[in-house]
Simulated scan of single mutants.
Amino acid sequence: MSQAVRVARWLGIGLLLLGYPVLAHYTLMNVENGKLGAVVAVAPVFVIGLIYAWKSSPQWVGLSLFVLAGGAGAASWTLLEHHFGVLYWMLDAGMQCVLFMTFGRTLFGERKPLCTHFAEVAHGVITPQHAQYARQVTWAWAVFFGLMATVSTLLFFLAPLTVWSVFANFLTLPLIALMFIVEFGVRRRVLPAGGSSRILDSLRVWKDQRKPGHRTQPAE
Rank of each mutant, 00 (worst) to 15 (best):
V5T: 11
A8W: 07
A8R: 11
W10E: 03
G12P: 09
G12M: 09
G14M: 00
G14C: 01
L16C: 10
L17W: 04
P21L: 01
L23M: 13
A24Q: 01
N30R: 08
V31N: 09
E32K: 10
E32W: 08
G34Q: 00
G34P: 02
K35E: 09
K35V: 09
G37M: 03
A38T: 05
V39D: 04
V39S: 00
V39Q: 00
A41P: 04
V42D: 03
V42A: 15
P44E: 07
P44T: 06
V45W: 07
F46I: 10
V47K: 00
I48F: 12
G49M: 02
G49Q: 01
I51K: 02
Y52F: 09
A53T: 04
S56K: 02
S56C: 03
P58Q: 03
V61L: 15
L63D: 05
S64T: 15
V67S: 05
G73D: 04
A75R: 13
W77N: 06
W77F: 10
T78S: 15
L79G: 12
M90F: 15
D92M: 11
A93P: 00
C97M: 14
V98E: 01
L99C: 06
G104L: 00
L107G: 05
F108N: 12
E110H: 11
R111S: 15
P113F: 11
C115S: 13
T116M: 12
T116C: 07
A119H: 08
E120F: 06
E120A: 05
A122Y: 12
G124T: 06
G124L: 03
G124D: 10
V125D: 13
I126W: 07
H130K: 07
A131Q: 13
Q132V: 14
T138V: 08
W139H: 15
W139M: 14
W141A: 11
A142C: 09
A142K: 01
V143K: 05
F144I: 02
A149K: 06
A149L: 05
T153V: 09
L154K: 03
F157K: 03
L158Q: 14
P160L: 00
V166Q: 04
F167G: 05
F167T: 00
L171E: 12
L171V: 11
T172M: 04
L173N: 03
P174V: 10
L175V: 02
L175D: 01
I176R: 05
I176W: 04
I176F: 13
A177E: 02
A177N: 04
I181E: 11
E183A: 00
E183R: 05
F184E: 14
F184A: 12
V186K: 08
R188G: 06
R189E: 09
V190S: 03
V190F: 13
V190T: 12
G194E: 15
R198Q: 15
R198H: 15
R198T: 14
I199V: 07
D201Y: 12
S202T: 01
L203T: 04
W206G: 15
W206V: 06
K207L: 14
K207R: 15
Q209E: 13
R210S: 01
G213W: 06
G213N: 07
G213P: 04
G213F: 09
H214S: 15
T216E: 14
T216W: 09
E220W: 10
